[in-house]
Design a protein around this nucleic acid. Sequence first.
DNA 1: AAGTTAGCCAACCGCCACCGC
DNA 2: TGCGGTGGCGGTTGGCTAACT
Length: 239
Amino acid sequence: MAYETVAAMQGESLRKGPWHEEEDERLITFVKLLGSRRWDYVARASGLKRSGKSCRLRWLNYLRPNIKHGHISAEEEKIILQLHERWGNKWSMIARRLPGRTDNEIKNYCRTHLRKKAVIQEQVETFQFGRDNGKQLFLFQEDGSSSQTCNGESYKPCVDTLDNENGSYETVELSDFALTSSPYQTRLSDWISEFPSDQSEIKSQGESNSTDSLYCYPTWVSYEENDLWGCSGSLWNLE
DNA sequence: AAGTTAGCCAACCGCCACCGC
DNA sequence: TGCGGTGGCGGTTGGCTAACT
């Protein structure tokens, strides 16, 4: 019978919400003792009023050794995005390629950043099709004599691209502008624009021995879904 | 300075696949 | 072979905090 059911029958309510330090310590102790497979057993044996699932999640996402927290590096960003392009929302698969990162962390990261990217893309498309019902657009052209400053970076509103003489629009390329709904998005758009647009580029970068290349992941051309990559880059050698 | 908004992240929920009985 | 238990996974939520107005 499921632990949750047993607990419910006994009138024992399972704890929810944030974990306390004592709970963490206790969980670590019992995982070391019992291993990290039988979570229902760990939950019961430890006396934690948590479900096995909850214990498992806490261990995998926070307590297990060699876990990395905090800032996702540029290398990791690129790998995440590329693997997401390839596999979609297979967070656990992606996480396995990034030692120390959890599926939850990657999922959260993607949700935030992919959404941001989608918004930017939508804005770019809107701009390229013309003004949105005459509303003020959000694009600013980078310029030394800018009239707007944000976090030390300065911008000025882009010139109106509507040709009033004949009512037509000039074509505006992404590379001509920095997207500046925020300075952060500017950097993000820069990053997106740097991103290889097809796998042949990725392959050539993967094969490159250039030491100044950011890429240290293997090529994926010709590799099967479940095949392990011949990982030799620094990212996989992290301790 | 106070209120509001947006971003981030930990944790929960529900579904599904696998396994043992 | 069917069923219940369990773990794994992706989606979602809620709280905290920083940034903005």
